[in-house]
Design a protein around this nucleic acid. Sequence first.
DNA 1: GTCTATAGGCTGATAGAC
DNA 2: GTCTATCAGCCTATAGAC
Lengths: 230, 230
Amino acid sequence: MGKAEYTKETILDAAEARFADAGYDTVSMRHVADGAGVPLGLINYHFGTKEKLFEAVIARRAEELNARRREALSAVGKMSPATVEAVLGAFLRPYLELTLRGGAGWRSYGKLIAETGQSHRWCTLITNQFGELANRFIDALVKAEPRLTRELAARGYVHMVSVMVGIFAANELLDIVSGGKFTSRDLERAYDCAMPFLTGAFHGFAAHATSVGTTKPPARPRTPARTVRH
Amino acid sequence: MGKAEYTKETILDAAEARFADAGYDTVSMRHVADGAGVPLGLINYHFGTKEKLFEAVIARRAEELNARRREALSAVGKMSPATVEAVLGAFLRPYLELTLRGGAGWRSYGKLIAETGQSHRWCTLITNQFGELANRFIDALVKAEPRLTRELAARGYVHMVSVMVGIFAANELLDIVSGGKFTSRDLERAYDCAMPFLTGAFHGFAAHATSVGTTKPPARPRTPARTVRH
DNA sequence: GTCTATAGGCTGATAGAC
DNA sequence: GTCTATCAGCCTATAGAC
């Protein structure tokens, strides 16, 4: 690695850590420069603007995460029959493994994309990086559970991302509502629990596919009984 | 309403709308002042700091939302037997109804608490306002589905909040992964689909309660087969 | 309570020496 | 490629006239 490359990586490391901890807006270019031990001007020289720096942070590790997910999904495709659970695992487990055992950089990155991925502001950036695989996972979900309409599979995928984000963003809601008895910091445990939750959710979707599965929802009384019937 | 009260409400209205649209950090006190049509100094006079202004925005409508949820939960408690679905509806439907039919202010507020509620930064503020009811909903979930351990009920509650947040934050992921075929803007439809998803999820939790329900997870092989067994 | 003016500091970005 | 010095603008918050 050339010296310039090394400098850029150092800057990206510092930016990644700071952005993950404090968020894009509260972190200044000076904070990043201090964290990386480089002068301020060097960051603009290498990355142009703050926004481009952020995009570079997101992009740096995206392809490896995508590759691992692609690989895991491919392995699932060779199963017969592939289960919904296996498809969900192919999406979530690479993310979990890298966050837990990929080192400090991946730990920051995992938190960063969780906190970034649900904001309207960076939606196009995130979907540019990770959206490519989304439809292949949705395809796999429909294949594993043919009762799913494409709409329900897509909605389920989005919900799964929401749950994932909630787990990895470490927002401590679980700690608070459980009075500290359970902690959101144990990601292994969170994963083990999220899995039956999500598989159950998709089974619920499949079971109700006939009643909610049309693109135009069936006419239903407006005020009372908004509830979907069993 | 006195003139000063009216001024404060006007400021809160403008702050609510701006914060919901652009986020706390990107909105300046000057933006709020311009939006409200009042001079900058008046905001600091009435609310002190920007952070306190934000807290006042969140607090203003919190009690009404809590009251409606409390009422709905109380009605569910009189059902026999209460269902998981009914408990979830008691949490989600007041939020949906106010967002859809409470006027522009509630529409902004619904978006704002969705975008705020999942961030680490405002976690204590949000749980101060909405955490009180959380344990009553968790209690109701356990009562409706006694196979749930308290841990699973708490985790399920948190996941439900994540899904809710994903729906109301309008981050357009659904629009993108579905190629515009389905839209995240139709909240009624999103609610109707989220309901069977979430009830299925809790049923999945209940069915797996014996295998994942202990506080200390059972010993399980580290590298392969992280998957929870059926 | 309302409004104006301004203090004091931090921001992203750049020009220019080396 | 690296580093220093600096620009111009925006920020929150406040002092003081009315």
